[in-house]
């Protein structure tokens, strides 16, 4: 645990340093930019809300990637699973009669989002378990398939009035906003926290979680311990996809209230960053998502000082720094005298 914290801290410091150097290159004072960024994000209700809104999607995709990672699967296709969730959630939401009460409409749309994501990822898990297809390749490729299918369906059936937006979902399926200066943050935040708690419970408190982690650490050992590796792979991918699909709830039910092409683009990829930065622990993923959300919302809030591309770039730097600092910390601790565990 301590090792994870050290690695994350080193990574964040390294990213701050790289960001500061880049700011100096563009010719603005790093102190001023970071200061303004923190000030504007945490004192302005709207910016704070936007940060939480961004963090909600990122956390769900991050939990998705983290869950699969625990089972030794690298789900790089959260992007496509999220897109499938957006498609299913908004299509079903729009198909519901306008008078559908919220207690029916919301669970139906949530199930559609999670189900579609789970279906896409479950297919990846099935291919891995039965045909040995590498999950990285098949899930990346499915990203393109899902993006193509949803654009095609949009053009053929869903888009209304020459726009790239579909019909609005039933009002009962809309998630309430949380206020905060008219920002987009909505009740999906609560769903996300519940999902994180559920993932933590599943991971640390059930035999399922134990089996998943056993497969992640050593599939051969898990198999000889009587665990069905194939089953774990399919289930873990399905659950992972369902979480990524749920992020559609934040975007469709809480924000756009309609199908839109490219809604949430890149969120799935940034979810990978959140999972890696959070070291696959649910609490870590939430914190990482908040940090990445801060970079996103804060980057927009200081857009007149530095180009917002700088904060986009920093998100990549953060992940790179985490990847590099983990073995670094591991080595440093291996050299240090053993402490009582």
């Amino acid at each position: 645990m301590k090792r994870e914290l050290q690695a994350a801290a080193i990574a964040v410091l390294a990213s701050l340093a790289v960001g500061s150097v880049l700011m100096l290159v563009v010719g603005v004072s790093p102190v001023r930019v970071w200061g303004t960024m923190v000030e504007r994000t945490f004192t302005d209700e709207y910016n704070l809300g936007q940060m939480l809104f961004a963090a909600t999607s990122l956390a769900l995709c991050g939990l998705a990637v983290a869950l699969a990672l625990e089972a030794g699967l690298f789900n790089i296709g959260a992007e496509g699973q999220l897109a499938a969730g957006v498609l299913a959630c908004s299509t079903l939401g729009a198909a519901l009669p306008a008078g559908t009460p919220a207690p029916i409409a919301i669970p139906v749309c949530l199930a559609a989002a999670a189900g579609a994501g789970g279906l896409v990822a479950g297919g990846v898990g099935l291919l891995k378990a039965t045909r040995g297809a590498h999950e990285v390749i098949s899930s990346i490729m499915l990203n393109f398939v899902v993006a193509g299918v949803s654009l095609w369906l949009g053009n053929e059936l869903l888009f209304v009035g020459g726009a790239t937006t579909g019909a609005p979902i039933a009002p009962g399926a809309e998630l309430p906003h949380l206020g905060l200066g008219g920002s987009s943050v909505n009740a999906a935040l609560a769903i996300t926290l519940a999902a994180a708690a559920a993932v933590w419970w599943l991971r640390d408190r059930t035999t399922w979680g134990e089996a998943w982690r056993a497969v992640g650490r050593d599939p051969a050992a898990a198999r000889s311990a009587g665990i069905s590796v194939e089953r774990v792979q399919v289930l873990a991918m399905t659950a992972s996809g369902a979480l990524a699909g749920l992020a559609a709830a934040n975007l469709v039910m809480g924000y756009k209230h309609a199908f839109e092409d490219g809604l949430g683009r890149n969120t799935g990829f940034l979810g990978i960053s959140a999972a890696l930065l959070g070291r696959s622990h649910p609490a870590g993923v939430i914190i990482a998502a908040l940090l990445l959300g801060f970079l996103q919302a804060g980057g927009l809030a200081v857009a007149e000082l530095v180009p917002k591309e700088l904060t986009e770039m920093l998100q990549g730097v953060v992940v790179l720094a985490v990847a590099a600092s983990v073995p670094f910390v591991a080595r440093a601790r291996a050299r240090a005298p053993k402490e009582a565990a």
């Binding site: 890149n266 940034l270 990978i272 770039m313 992940v319």
Partner: peptide
């Protein structure tokens, strides 16, 4: 530094997108 190849790859892609 001994970082995971796959993670480094993903990170560089993100970096390139913004960079």
């Amino acid at each position: 530094l001994g970082a995971d190849q796959v993670i480094v790859g993903v990170a560089l892609n993100l970096l390139a997108l913004g960079g």
